[in-house]
Every structure is written in structure tokens, then in C-alpha cells.
Design a protein around this nucleic acid. Structure first.
Length: 720
DNA sequence: AACCGAGAA
């Protein structure tokens, strides 16, 4: 496989830009042979395209490619503590390996086989599938646990869970004593939770020699995982504790085409290419990747428009696919295609790994993705459009080769592909670290700098994370979690600044309101922006919900109206509100209230009290003081600490004000815009966060700064 | 005027 360390050139891409005229005429494509991309999402392939549906369960099981490796895997697990299973599309490892383990007696002593997944749907689908195969009720021998949903019992031997749940379980059972084997599935995706789980498992196996770990990974990362888990420090290979096994998959070859020159506008290029394929190519559905909802909808509109004018060819059926769609709308992409009709699914990255659309013959890859990245200058995470990695491009291409040989069209030249990063930067290296540090400390790992990370985060990010936690009062001068604040913060399923707000809401006499506001900020897009002629009406309705003090009180207002109107779906539709999101918000609110009661924080409402909105906004400042900004003569908001300029998100409630507030805090950022903004008084900042903001003469500030510097060095000594 | 990808506790 390619050497990861050697190729780290920055990609040079042209971003879509409406000013640049689009290419006219046919796109020129070059073909190159292509190895099918590795696809770990075997679950959905089994569920949606099961070629053996008519066979008995046992016959089906024995026909899966992995069945050939059954005894080998069991043998390796006797000999090695860690086994890396490299499995291609449809190998069946996620469903079969746990069953092999049970059959071989690994669950005989009352311990469980735990399988972690990065996604809830996968957890539920897999558990259902395997309980069917074992002909037991869900929750008996086979069960699962995800947030808000625990379907296990004392009889459970095979337990599927989200990796986030495993991290939670580690808090009460740090050595995972209830498990004999842990299988970490989809490890190559390198999500934050998976990486963290792997780092912790590495620590556990060095203590618990009876625990076995199975990592399921793609080819590219297999050696990385093996070396990470290898405990043998001698040169004697017979003492190795980690090994790799490859399992054959069921992927078909995909031929890849590149453009001769870069497409100036990938959206136009996508639309042109779909039409061109539709006119000239054999029947077969198309999957096109774009970066966001707006792009997807725009491309769909144009395709529908253009397909009207087509003559002498099949119909074109255009289906959008992105996370913001309701379950029912998403399911449309799974409908089979009518006679003489070609389906084209225009999707965001949701179709790269999370959702597998069956029967795709051709993939169009724009080469970009929208991703959260951290700005090292100000430590603020932002969503940005950036070039994909080579492994991501291969994953996209592989979506065309699931049931027969397929084609992948990349809207960039091969020379650009060569410049892409070999694999996507692990989330651990592009995110805020405060949550990670908090979690590690709660698990008793005090020296977070020395922790054995699968991907070591940048030192600056680590420093920023520690500083934030210190400023929030979650860790003390000794570097330990404070009690009860730090310990409670680690317990909450929220980012640290939100946890701080929630846990202090009792003191500010507004815990009822804050629990709602925080739950509402955890769901995206409460306001639905409808297409076409309804846009203006939606805007008018939204305006009615808006509160002058800002978005947080607006969110509170929306939620309270939703409850007062009987949680009605109809009412939501009439008011252009996201019903699904509001239901989820209520769920989250209930969970947060349970946590608050556990932490012995009083549930009080400030409703009707004098200065009630000030109480709420002060409470928000108590956690979000690092995200304070003032209105600048340039028309931007400038963060107080780093003096970093931001625009106001067009959907913010403060847009409706005749004049922008001078001082605000914000709780979310996208691109270069702040959103979820509330007006504050500047005095609150140095009143509530004196460690962060100074107020006084130059001399007073200087002497205060000296004191904090001293504190800094003692703190650093304690942390290192 | 149009700036929220995908996940998870």
C-alpha cells in the first residue's frame, strides 16, 4: 500500500464560483483502471441487497465470504490479544465474527462480546439482523445500547453499542470487566469516539491480559492499528500480541474517469455530466456527491428543469439526499426505479458511508466535502468546504461497485487526485480537545499529554483545551477535575461550555429555561426554509417567533410554543418548524433535567421574575464568555479575546433589530459567521469570568496578568 | 442575500 508519510502536498482546487463561466461542451474524461474502494458498511448491503434471501439462515451465513476465515479468526484470537480484521464490502464480519465468538465459548463465563459502531442506525440494524440469525428475541442473547435506548438483559451475550456508549460504560467499569472481547467496527473512519475508544483499549489490554480486542479496518490503516496495539517489546516475533487478517469482500471493479482540466464550477459540471450520461450511457442509476443541502437542492432543480427538454431518451428521476431530510424523504432514494427511468440521487457526504443507496452504476465525485475544522488562530471550530482525501474519493467510487461493475467520474484531473491527502485527517486532530481532556480525566487519566493517542493531537490544541477547562473551573490548579463541577461536567453529554452553563443554571434561577435552550442548540435548523413561493411566508412566521435579545431566547420561545400547541406536527408544518428536531430537543431536555436532578441542582423557572431574560443571558455568559464579541465599526463582530472578526449569520434573530447589539455572546460558528447570538452587558464578562477578562487601570491589569502568569507556570508544572 | 457535512453521549 502507499506510504502514508510521503504524500503530504496541499491540494490545489478551484472552488465553485458563479463568476467563472462554466465549461460548455462535453467534458473530456480519461480512464484509468481502478481497484474497488474498501467499504466497511457491510450491514446495509446485507439488509438491502441480500442475494441469498431464499436460503435458510444457516446456509446464508455459511455463504458469506468471512465464513472461510472462521477457524482462522478463532485461532488468531487464542494466540493474539489483538486482531485487526481487514474486511472488504459485504464480507459479513460485523454480523458473523461476534457469533463465531459465542459459538466458540467466548461468552461462556457470563461475559459479553461487545461490538462498537460509530452510528446508531448501524447498531440497531446489526442487532436486529443478528438476533434474527440466532432466532432469539432482541434483548435476549443479542442486544444493543444507544443513547435513549437500552435493549439488553442479563441473558445478553452479544451486545452492539455506539462507541459513545462504550466510553460512558468505561466511566463506571474502567476495565470493561463485563466483556471478554471488544470489537471496534469501522475503525478506519477515525471518528473522535472510535479513536478515543481505541486509545483506552490499548491501556486496558496492558492491564487485562484476558481481554481480546478486534479492530475492523480498511487496508490502508491495518498496520497502524497493529503497531499501536503491539505489546511485544522484544525482537522475537513469536511473542507478538497483535496481528492482521484479511477477509475477502464482494466489491466489483469500478472504472474511474477524470476530467482533463479542472472544472471551474463543480455544480454546473455535475448537472452537465448527469445529462450527458443520461443521454449516452446504458441504463443504471447515478449517485452524485455535492457538499451541502443548498447545492443538492440547486442541482436537483436544474436537473429537473433540464430533463423536461430531453427527447428520445428515458425519463430522469431526480432525488435529493441529505441529513436534513425527514426519514420518509430519505427513503425515496431507496425506491426502485420504474421502467425506462433513470434515478439520479444527488447527495451530501451522507451517502459516502452512513447511507448506502442500492443499485448505483455510476458515481460523480465533485472532490469536495464540508467538514468541521479548527482554526488554530482562535481555537474556534468552523464548517468549511475542503478537498476530500484519496481514501474518501475511493470510498465514493466504491459506491458504484456494490452489485455490478460500475463507473466513477471525478470532476478533477488525475494530477489533482495525486495531490490529495492519502487519508482524511482524524477527527482527533482537527477538533476541540476540551471534551476529550475532560473525558480522559474523568476516566482517571490525569496526564493527558502522555496518553497513548492513536493520532496525537496538535500541542496547541491541547493547550487551548486545558486552558478552556481551567477557565471554566472544570480543572483546578493541580490539573485534577474539580468537585463537583468538573466531575459533573464530564458526566454530561454536552460540550464543556454548554455543561458549564447548564450546571450553573440553578444559581442563576433559570434551570428550566436553560435546559430547554441548550437542548434546542443541540439540534440543527429548527426553522425550516421551504423552497419556492413559501419562502417569504416562512420568513414572516420566523420573525414572529424572534425575540429582540437574541437567538437563545428565540429558541426558548419556539420550544414553549411547540409544547403549548400540543407538540402538533401540523402546527409545526404551518409554522415552518422542524417537527422531528423539536421532538428530539424535548428528549434531550428530559435527559438534561435528569442529569441536573442527579447533580442535585434545583429546577427553577425565572418566568415572571423581574429581569428574567437577563438571568438567562447571564447564565449563558457564565459558560460562553470565551465567545464574547463586540460590534465593530466595520460592521463585523470582533471577538474580545483574539480580536477575530465574524459576520452575523443571516438567519440570526438579531437581524430583525433596527440596530445590532453592541455586546454579544455566540454559541455556534459556521464559515465566517457567528450564529445563536445573545445580547449581553459587558460588565457581566468581568463579573462572571474575571480570570478571562480584566477591567481596571493598565497597572491593575498588568499586576493581575503577572499573577495569572505565575499561576500558569505552576499549573503547567502540575500538568506535565 | 442565502453561509449547516456526517456522526454521537
Amino acid at each position: 500500500m502507499s506510504d502514508q508519510g510521503l504524500r503530504h502536498r496541499r491540494p490545489h482546487f478551484i472552488k465553485p464560483n458563479d463568476d467563472i463561466p462554466s465549461v460548455s461542451g462535453p467534458l473530456l474524461m480519461e480512464e484509468r483502471a481502478f481497484e474497488p474502494g474498501v467499504d466497511e458498511n457491510a450491514i446495509t448491503s446485507i439488509v438491502y441487497n441480500n442475494p441469498f434471501a431464499s436460503l435458510s439462515i444457516q446456509q446464508q451465513r455459511s455463504r458469506l465470504p468471512i465464513f472461510k476465515n472462521r477457524s482462522h479468526i478463532l485461532y488468531l484470537l487464542e494466540k493474539y490479544q489483538t486482531v485487526i480484521v481487514v474486511g472488504e464490502t459485504g464480507s459479513g464480519k460485523s454480523t458473523q465474527v461476534p457469533q463465531y465468538l459465542v459459538e466458540a465459548g467466548w461468552a461462556a463465563d457470563g461475559r459479553m462480546i461487545g461490538i462498537t459502531q460509530p452510528r446508531r442506525v448501524a447498531v440497531v440494524t446489526l442487532a436486529n439482523r443478528v438476533s434474527d440469525e440466532r432466532q432469539c428475541g432482541l434483548g435476549d442473547e443479542v442486544g444493543y445500547t444507544v443513547r435513549f435506548d437500552d435493549v439488553t438483559s442479563s441473558k445478553t451475550k452479544i451486545k452492539y453499542m455506539s462507541d459513545g456508549i462504550m466510553l460512558r460504560e468505561l466511566m463506571s467499569d474502567p476495565l470493561l470487566t463485563r466483556y471478554s472481547v471488544i470489537m471496534v467496527d469501522e475503525a478506519h473512519e477515525r471518528s473522535m469516539n472510535t479513536d478515543l475508544a481505541i486509545g483506552l483499549l490499548r491501556k486496558i489490554i496492558s492491564i487485562r491480559s484476558d481481554l481480546r480486542v478486534i479492530i475492523s479496518s480498511a487496508t490502508l490503516d491495518a498496520e497502524l492499528f497493529r503497531d499501536f496495539f503491539e505489546l511485544n517489546e522484544t525482537n522475537d516475533p513469536s511473542k507478538d500480541t497483535a496481528t492482521i487478517i484479511s477477509v475477502e469482500g464482494r466489491a466489483y471493479p469500478v472504472s474511474t474517469f477524470y476530467t482533463k482540466t479542472g472544472a471551474p464550477n463543480y455544480l454546473d459540471a455535475t448537472v452537465d455530466l448527469v445529462i450527458k450520461i443520461h443521454k449516452n450511457e446504458q441504463p443504471g442509476d447515478i449517485l452524485a456527491f455535492l457538499t451541502g443541502q443548498d447545492e443538492v437542492e440547486l442541482a436537483c432543480d436544474r436537473l429537473r428543469e433540464q430533463s423536461k427538454n430531453l427527447k428520445d431518451c428515458d425519463k430522469l428521476w431526480v432525488v435529493p439526499m441529505y441529513g436534513g431530510l425527514s426519514a420518509r424523504e430519505q427513503l425515496k432514494a431507496f425506491d426502485s426505479t420504474a421502467y425506462r427511468t433513470r434515478k439520479v440521487v444527488v447527495a451530501t457526504n451522507i451517502a459516502e458511508a452512513s447511507v448506502t443507496i442500492p443499485g448505483i452504476a455510476a458515481v460523480i465525485d465533485c472532490g469536495f466535502v464540508k467538514m468541521r475544522v479548527i482554526n488554530p488562530k482562535n481555537g474556534i471550530e468552523t464548517l468549511m468546504v475542503i478537498p476530500i482525501s484519496q481514501s474518501s474519493a475511493e470510498q465514493r467510487a466504491g459506491r458504484a461497485g456494490r452489485i455490478r461493475p460500475g463507473k466513477c467520474y471525478r470532476l478533477y484531473p488525475e494530477s489533482e487526485f495525486d495531490k490529495l491527502l492519502p487519508s482524511t485527517i482524524p477527527e482527533m486532530q482537527r477538533s476541540h480537545l476540551a471534551p476529550v481532556i475532560l473525558q480522559l480525566k474523568a476516566l482517571g487519566i490525569q496526564n493527558v499529554l502522555r496518553f497513548h493517542y492513536l493520532a496525537r493531537p496538535p500541542a496547541d490544541a491541547m493547550k487551548q483545551g486545558l486552558e478552556l477547562l481551567y477557565a471554566l473551573g472544570a480543572i483546578g490548579d493541580d490539573g485534577l477535575l474539580t468537585s463537583p463541577l468538573g466531575i459533573n461536567m464530564a458526566d454530561l453529554p454536552l460540550p464543556p461550555m454548554f455543561s458549564k452553563v447548564l450546571l450553573s443554571s440553578g444559581e442563576f434561577e433559570c434551570s428550566e429555561e436553560i435546559a430547554i435552550i441548550i437542548a434546542m442548540t443541540q439540534i440543527q435548523d429548527v426553522f425550516v426554509v421551504p423552497g419556492g413561493g413559501k419562502r417569504h411566508r416562512a420568513e414572516v412566521v420566523k420573525r414572529k417567533f424572534s425575540v429582540a435579545e437574541g437567538d437563545h431566547l428565540t429558541l426558548l420561545n419556539v420550544f414553549q410554543n411547540f409544547i403549548q400547541n400540543g407538540r402538533s406536527k401540523n402546527w409545526c408544518n404551518q409554522h415552518f418548524l422542524n417537527y422531528r428536531g423539536l421532538i428530539r430537543a424535548e428528549n434531550i431536555r428530559e435527559q438534561l433535567v435528569r442529569y441536573l436532578k442527579q447533580c442535585k441542582i434545583k429546577m427553577v423557572s425565572c418566568s415572571g421574575l423581574i429581569g428574567s431574560t437577563a438571568k438567562i443571558r447571564r447564565c449563558l455568559v457564565n459558560g460562553f464568555f470565551p465567545y464574547a464579541a463586540r460590534y465593530d465599526h466595520t460592521g463585523n463582530y470582533v471577538t474580545i479575546r483574539e480580536e477575530y472578526p465574524f459576520k452575523v449569520y443571516k438567519g440570526s434573530a438579531i437581524m430583525y433589530r433596527p440596530e445590532y447589539p453592541k455586546w454579544v455572546i455566540f454559541t455556534d460558528v459556521l464559515q465566517n459567521s457567528i450564529r445563536d447570538i445573545s445580547e449581553i452587558e459587558p460588565e457581566w464578562l468581568y463579573e462572571l469570568a474575571p480570570q478571562f477578562y480584566d477591567f481596571g487601570t493598565e497597572g491593575e491589569i498588568a499586576s493581575k496578568k503577572r499573577r495569572t502568569d505565575d499561576l500558569d507556570s505552576t499549573r503547567k508544572a502540575n500538568l506535565n
